[in-house]
C-alpha cells in the first residue's frame, strides 16, 4: 500500500509538472514572440563599437537578466536522458526561453532610454542550482551591452 502511494506521488508530480510546465512554456513563448516584434526596432550588434557609417550618441550600459526554472516532468525526463544520452530536448526550451527573455529585457531597457542600437552584446549563463544540489533546477541568463542612439550615415 505504501509502495502504491509512493508510486502514485511520483506519477501525480509528473502529471502536475507536465501540465503546468506546458502551460507556462506556451504562454512564455507567446509573450516572447510578441515582444520580439515590438522591440525589433532596437538593433543588436556584436561589434564593440559602431562602424564608421553609424553616428552614435548617448552611450549607456543596458542589462537584462532572466531566471527560468524547470518543472518536475522536465527534470525526470532529463534524468532518464542522462542514462542513455542524446539531445536534452527538455532543457533546450528552458535555455532558449531564458536567453530570449534576457535579450528582450535588455532591449526594452535600451528602448526606454531612447536608444535604437545595442553594441558589444554579451550573454552569460549561470546555473543557480550550483551548490544547492537538486533543490533548484533553474538557469539564469544575463545579457548586457552598450546602448546608443544611432543613425546610419549615407556611405561615401
Amino acid at each position: 500500500m505504501e509502495f502504491l502511494i509512493q508510486v502514485g506521488l511520483v506519477v501525480a508530480f509528473l502529471f502536475l509538472g507536465f501540465v503546468f510546465g506546458q502551460i507556462a512554456e506556451k504562454r512564455h513563448y507567446k509573450s516572447i514572440i510578441k515582444r520580439e516584434k515590438t522591440y525589433g526596432r532596437v538593433m543588436m550588434f556584436g561589434a564593440k563599437f559602431p562602424d564608421s557609417d553609424i553616428s552614435a550618441r548617448d552611450a549607456s550600459l543596458v542589462t537584462g537578466s532572466a531566471v527560468v526554472s524547470i518543472d518536475y516532468f522536465k527534470r525526470f525526463v532529463t534524468g532518464l536522458r542522462a542514462i542513455v544520452g542524446g539531445r536534452v530536448r527538455s532543457y533546450e526550451t528552458l535555455v532558449d526561453r531564458a536567453r530570449r527573455e534576457a535579450i528582450l529585457r535588455m532591449k526594452q531597457q535600451a528602448d526606454d532610454l531612447g536608444c535604437n542600437m545595442v553594441f558589444n552584446i554579451k550573454i552569460e549563463t549561470a546555473s543557480i542550482s550550483k551548490g544547492a544540489g537538486k533543490a533548484i533546477g533553474s538557469v539564469e541568463v544575463l545579457a548586457y551591452g552598450t546602448a546608443v542612439a544611432g543613425s546610419e550615415t549615407p556611405s561615401t
Partner: peptide
C-alpha cells in the same frame, strides 16, 4: 543594418515531450 526576426524552433528540437518521455 537589419535584425531579422528569430525563427521559431531553431534552437529547440522537434518532437512532443510526452513521446520523448
Amino acid at each position: 543594418y537589419t535584425n531579422p526576426e528569430i525563427k521559431q524552433d531553431v534552437n529547440v528540437s522537434k518532437g512532443h515531450p510526452l513521446a520523448e518521455f
